[in-house]
Amino acid sequence: MTILQRFLTVVLVAAVTLFTRAIPFAVFSHGRKPPAFISWLGRQLPRAVMAMLVIYCLKDLDLSSVPSGAPALIAVAATAALHIWKKQMILSIFGGTAVYMALLRLLG
């Protein structure tokens, strides 16, 4: 690729990415109220999508060999447990990350 082609590629990726982020707003704008199903779906999606994102983050786990998947699964459980116990977002996230980093070094 020439420098111009590389630049165009980056701009193209940016444009398509923006398209995926903007399309719902473009379709349901100008004072048009979205249909009842879309409004309902929009309220339901956060809880479905967050579950999707946790699994998305864990997609590279290799469950066929036990030790490699263990740190992430234990750390996810530790993060949730810490959050139910203390209800402190920052503490849960950094505590869970510390558990993961420690397990990675102990088991890896």
Binding site: R47, C57, H83, G96, Y100, M101
Partner: peptide, 21 residues
């Protein structure tokens, strides 16, 4: 710093936990 990117997984996990509670 290997493994610090787990903070993203932890962020999403905390939000799922919060939503469930």
């Amino acid at each position: 710093l290997t493994g610090i990117d787990f903070s993203m997984t932890a962020l999403f996990t905390v939000i799922v936990t919060e939503q469930s509670m």
